[in-house]
Amino acid sequence: MARLEIGQIIAVLKEKLPEAVSEEVLDGVDPVIVVKAEQWAAVAELCRDDSRLGFDLLSCITGVDYPEREEGAEIEVIYNLDSTANLHELTVKVKLPRSDPRVASVEGTWATADWHERETYDLVGVIFEGHHNLVRILCADDWVGHPLRKDYEPPDSFHGIKNVIY
C-alpha cells in the first residue's frame, strides 16, 4: 500500500496484461495511458483488484468527440481513477471509432460507472456494451441526437416549444 508513480503503475498493468496499454502519454499535463477498447474491461478489473493499484474510486468518465482527427474520426472516453487507500491517480483513455463507438461497460467494477456511462451515452453517444440500462439520463427521454458531438444541431422546437430563439 503505497503511492505509486505513473511508471510503476504502467509496469504493474503490463505485468498482468502486456497487450492492454497501447500508448503512454507521459509528457502532457497529466500522464495518460491509452488502453485498447477490447481490453478495457480486464484492465478495469485489474485496476480495482490489484492491491498495489487499488483504484477503488472511479472519479469521472468523460467522452470527447474528435470528428476531424488525421487518423480518422474518433471518440475518446476518459476514465479518471483514484485510490482512496494509496492516494495515487490514473487517467485512462479508450479511443473508439466515431462511426461505431462501443466499449465494455465497467458498471460491474465500479458501481458509479452506471450513471456516468449513461451520461456519456446521452451526451456523446458512446455505447457501453453490457450496461444493464443504457438509456438517456439528463436529456428528455425522447431527445434526438447526442448534444456534445461536435456536429450537433439543437432542434428548432421540442414538443411544440420553440427552442432556438436567436
Binding site: 428528455a140 450537433y152 432542434p155 416549444i161 427552442n163 430563439i165 436567436y166
Partner: peptide, 19 residues
C-alpha cells in the same frame, strides 16, 4: 429568456412564458 443558457443551452426552455 433562458438567461446565460440562451445560446448554447439546447435543453433549456428559453423563457417560461413559452409554456
Amino acid at each position: 429568456r433562458g438567461g446565460p443558457y440562451v445560446k448554447h443551452g439546447y435543453h433549456v426552455v428559453k423563457g417560461v412564458d413559452l409554456v
